[in-house]
Design a protein around this nucleic acid. Structure first.
Lengths: 330, 330
DNA sequence: CTGAAAGCGCTTACAG
DNA sequence: CTGAAAGCGCTTACAG
């Protein structure tokens, strides 16, 4: 590739050993005598040699490449997830190949990641097609869904207990005397959204309450603003709003304050989900449900590497605890 | 790799052609007759064949892999940059290999990206060592610095005109009657920070003003909070603060409002740099200097691919215009 | 246009 | 422990 392009053959010549000896020296656990190893290392150092990872991948069947698919990074939860996943994969000797994709080009993307012989696939984003996960799973590539789930057992998933989280929010609202609780949904077809909403509804029902309003904002900031305005202009103005994630909750708080001149939480309480870094900022002080990104990524990496190492490890569904973080907004 | 592992040989056998014919069919521009191509495509379809990108990379010397290095993604500017860069690289047939790194393990990371025969390196993050860029450049790998620059001509860079941007802020402050302007710096050794500060200082000097205060917050949110508190508690409380980026400016506004009970901009004006999405949110309405991520990433990708294609294209320093976006905070 | 053959840089049985 | 050899899946001159 580069001009240098030092190969194991070059090193072998300089060190006066066979090319195999060079290869063994760079293969952990291979049997090489100390003296051979020393000669090889000296020559390698001198020439600036490093094994070509592509050649190694081809012959060994271990590309050490993991595909990570995201739909968008504007929701602050995803960069946090992405950063953590990348660091942990690197620490385990894997390398993340990043794919940004939307519903349109997912077919192309599957082909590309297969071309690169990735050893695993991480799918993060509530809005990515589950079809994709199933296809890769069927091809024998370990798949982990982050922050979402599908019914198919071929893919592993790591989510927080979204149902429990939604319920926690309901109880918190009720305990604080809120009676007209509305919900702003993410995307209708996302498992995450479905479970959070179900938890909220069940939690309210336990106190004889029903949703006082509901709009779907598709996990988008601008649509969340619209939804909030509609809710506030509706016949029965809510005294509390649970928003499917923090990113949209910020938009809702902005609208309540700026467009309606009302106070949060005095006039309307707002709660989100995720506990992104911005949730603790003074401007919002958002009450929210925390899902630990540490635990999420740790489990995801463990699931992947277990499946990669042991051929017969089955996909698993991991459910992490959801914790209510009470701040000023509710 | 996978269980399937269909190779060009399998396809050749089924299609009754040579393995070379299969390879040519999948090589754009290679000469194959239409009838051969049809037979090959049919067989390939039937077997689910796709060329192994790793093998292709090895033989052709074109891995189509681009390394992208980031230090952290919590500053909202970087996810935007990362998302855009990834999409544009993909659109050009490249694949981003992501490396999250800090000062500590940069040596390892260089080795790893070299192992994978990446064809280019994108370095984003003011805090990454320039040494790394130089080393890769010397090895003949095109390097593009995003949102920062170094003196060494071996690396290309794309930045906005940080000096001009800083000056715009100074003029805006002065025009609005601010006389005690303070600065909160990013990292002392970052080119971006240096230029923004120099622009501010020169702009103030043109009106006979000097900095009314200055602290360094290392691009960190918590340190920016501390710096703001110090500034506000100082002997000469500023009536305007220019913060080296939006991410820290949010912290500064929070402190001014929550800790000191003061108003922005009535009591203290605050301006940032970047124009991240959050800057336009109602809670902050941050006046800031926009650097177009569209232009930035488009130039970065163009610089990379030009250097990859034409061996004799020289590295370039691209300076994009900086635009003042006036909102409520100043 | 087509096929046989060489070769990209490596790992890994196979003998010794 | 060590080297010669086969082979991973492909691209690309080389002849025809």
């Amino acid at each position: 590739m580069g001009k240098g392009a030092v190969t194991s053959g070059d090193v072998a010549r300089l060190a006066n050993v066979s090319q195999s000896a060079v290869s063994r020296t760079f293969t952990p656990g291979a049997s090489v005598s100390q003296s051979t190893r020393d000669r090889v290392m000296k020559a390698a150092e001198e020439l600036g040699y490093r094994p070509n990872a592509l050649a190694r991948a081809m012959i060994s069947g271990q590309s050490k490449l993991i595909a990570m698919m995201f739909a968008y990074l504007e929701n602050q939860f995803y960069p946090v997830l992405l950063e953590r996943m990348s660091r942990e994969l690197q620490a385990k000797g894997y390398h993340p190949l990043l794919f940004m994709t939307e519903s349109g080009n997912q077919d192309d993307v599957v082909k590309q990641l297969l071309d690169y012989q990735v050893q695993g696939l991480v799918l993060a984003s509530a809005t990515l097609s589950s079809d994709l996960a199933v296809r890769c799973g069927d091809l024998g590539i370990p798949v982990v869904l982050l922050n979402r789930d599908i019914d198919d057992p071929v893919a592993s998933s790591v989510t927080s207990d979204n149902f429990a989280g939604g319920k926690l929010v309901a109880e918190h609202f009720v305990k604080n005397g809120r009676r007209r609780v509305a919900y702003i949904a993410g995307a209708e077809d996302s498992s995450t959204n479905r479970d959070r909403e179900a938890g909220l509804v069940v939690g309210l029902a336990a106190h004889g309450l029903a949703l006082a309003g509901r709009f779907c904002a598709n996990y988008r900031h601008d649509e969340a603003r619209d939804a909030a305005a509609r809710l506030m202009n509706g016949p029965e103005r809510p005294d509390a709003i649970f928003v499917a994630n923090d990113y949209m909750a910020f938009a809702v708080i902005d609208v309540i304050r700026s467009e309606f001149g009302l106070r949060v939480p005095e006039d309307v309480a707002v709660a989100g989900y995720d506990d992104v870094p911005e949730a603790s900022w003074d401007a919002y002080q958002l009450t929210t449900v925390r899902q630990s990104t540490e635990d999420m990524t740790a489990h995801a990496v463990a699931l992947l590497s277990d499946q990669i190492d042991g051929a017969f490890v089955r996909p698993q569904k991991v459910l992490l605890p959801a914790t209510l973080i009470v701040r000023r907004s509710a």
